[in-house]
């Protein structure tokens, strides 16, 4: 089997490019801690409302500009702890998201940010995000969950 000289160069170049991509995301993930959301903590999906911290959804301040935001998703609602479906966060704050679902699979996506994870019954999904930019960000469900899927939403407002 022979390979043309140009093809060898092309494949070397292509493979090297892929290696660079893998290295960049690998270092970012394993060295700098930017792993995709992969929390392994489980709970009983039928007892979400009795399990801390999901018995009290909402924003809790943990320290200097550091918060925990607990949200319970269900068809077709994000329970963020208030009826206005609005959470306000100061700019530059670090927020630990703690989310789960009481019924089916939901998506948890804060549009325009890197907060984007799956919610699956029995699992807690966590992600930590620092809000660098101000504005109103809409939280949407991005995995089909039933007839009202497109009605699930809440607002997270990052203020000065």
């Amino acid at each position: 089997m022979n390979m043309h000289k140009y093809e060898k160069i092309w494949l070397l170049f292509g493979t090297a490019t892929l290696l660079v991509f893998l290295t960049v995301v690998g270092i970012s993930a394993f060295y700098m801690g930017n792993q995709p959301p992969s929390c392994a903590v489980t709970l009983n999906p039928e007892k979400v409302h009795e399990t801390a911290p999901f018995d009290e959804p909402g924003l809790k301040q943990l320290g200097d500009n550091e918060y925990q935001l607990t949200i319970v998703a269900s068809a077709f609602n994000f329970d963020v702890g208030n009826n206005e479906k609005l959470i306000q966060i100061p700019k530059g704050a670090t927020v630990h998201f703690n989310v789960t679902t009481t019924d089916v699979v939901h998506g948890f996506e804060l549009a325009g940010t890197n907060v984007n994870m799956m919610l699956e019954p029995g699992y807690i999904s966590t992600y930590t995000n620092t809000f660098k930019n101000t504005g109103k960000f809409t939280l949407v469900c991005n995995e089909y969950c039933g007839a009202g899927h497109h009605l699930m939403a809440a607002t997270i407002e990052v203020i000065e």
């Binding site: 479906k85 998506g107 996506e109 804060l110 549009a111 325009g112 940010t113 504005g135 109103k136 960000f137 809409t138 949407v140 469900c141 991005n142 995995e143 089909y144 899927h149 497109h150 009605l151 939403a153 809440a154 607002t155």
Partner: peptide, 19 residues
């Protein structure tokens, strides 16, 4: 890239500027 979800019927969500 702007965050629009897939598999979703038409929705105005909460009326925020992003959606």
């Amino acid at each position: 890239l702007l965050g629009g979800p897939r598999r979703s019927a038409y929705s105005e969500y909460l009326g925020n500027a992003d959606t």
